[in-house]
Amino acid sequence: MDGETTLRDMLNRAYNNTAYDVQLRMQSADTHEEILKQLERALALAIGNLVKNRKYKQDQSEDALTTDLVSMLNMNGIPANHDVKIGGHTDISVEMRDGFLWIGEAKNWTGKAWIFKGFRQLMTRYATGISGQDNGAILIYFEQEKPSDLMSKWRTALGKLTVLTGDIVEVNELQFNSAHPHKGTGRTFNVKHFGVPLYWNPEDD
């Protein structure tokens, strides 16, 4: 029909607007895999915006930083929530149609032990591990210099402290992916680990 706007038309118009593109693709997604892809795109945008404004994020609590991320995910069309009770009080949870559930656990970096506590919470308290609910994330807020070195330390520690179902895959200096057997289901649970660099110490004064 003449004048009818298609999804392809709308996606073409969203070419230079990633947030709008994410919203359109999220709403039209018909698989858990596509939902996850768009969620992770939105998360990357939110993390980027948080880092841009790191001047104003110094000495904030994990909850304060995480609610900022949740708000930005909401603005990008992702139905994210903070502190929802799913086996415990989750930092970030996203629930969508057909039983999709994604959970993110966020920690301020105070050492490997604190991050490992968050990892164990994700794997043994929050994650169900069933189909459509077998992906999550660890988000690490760094106010320290050289967060890539600290991420490397966490990556090495994780390989020693947990059982893996495959190799740890380094995406870049501030992200790596790991996969682990979920004790409740025996299925593989996939975790993306994101370093969020918030160090701020201008030297131009």
Rank of each mutant, 00 (worst) to 15 (best):
M75L: 11
I115W: 01
S131D: 15
N177R: 15
D2Y: 06
H32N: 14
S61E: 08
G48I: 09
F119P: 01
T6G: 10
L11C: 12
T67P: 02
E173H: 09
K37W: 01
S148D: 13
H82N: 09
I92L: 11
T128F: 05
D91N: 08
N12M: 14
G132M: 09
V51T: 15
S152Y: 06
Y20G: 05
H193E: 00
M1I: 11
P197C: 00
Q133L: 10
E62G: 04
P181Q: 13
K52T: 08
F116N: 15
L65C: 07
K52L: 12
L36P: 00
N108M: 03
W200V: 06
K57G: 02
V196E: 02
A46W: 00
A64H: 12
E170L: 15
F116A: 13
V22K: 00
K112Q: 12
Y56E: 15
N74R: 14
K107H: 03
D91E: 09
H193M: 03
L43I: 07
V51P: 04
E4L: 13
A157D: 07
K146F: 10
T18Y: 03
A113I: 08
L43H: 07
N201P: 01
T110G: 10
F194K: 03
D204A: 12
K107Y: 07
Y141L: 04
G88C: 05
N49Y: 06
K183V: 08
S148G: 05
M1D: 11
P202D: 14
D83F: 00
A14R: 03
K183M: 07
L36D: 09
M1K: 09
Q38I: 02
A44Y: 05
N53I: 05
I86W: 02
D149T: 14
G159Q: 13
V196G: 03
F189E: 01
W114V: 08
W109H: 14
R120Y: 03
Y15S: 12
T5H: 00
Q121G: 02
G3S: 10
T110Y: 10
T124S: 14
T18P: 04
R125N: 14
E40C: 07
P197N: 06
E4P: 00
I35T: 10
K85V: 12
W102P: 01
N74L: 12
G77T: 03
A106K: 02
Q121F: 02
A80S: 11
L50F: 03
Q175S: 10
M75P: 00
D149Q: 14
K112C: 08
R54K: 15
Q27V: 03
D204S: 14
L11N: 07
R41E: 07
Q175I: 13
Q133M: 14
H89G: 10
I35K: 11
H89I: 07
A157N: 09
L139P: 01
Q58E: 10
D167T: 13
D91M: 08
G159L: 06
T5G: 00
P79M: 04
D98T: 05
S61N: 09
E4D: 11
I168G: 07
Y20N: 12
I140Q: 01
K55Y: 11
A113C: 00
L69F: 02
G77A: 02
D91P: 06
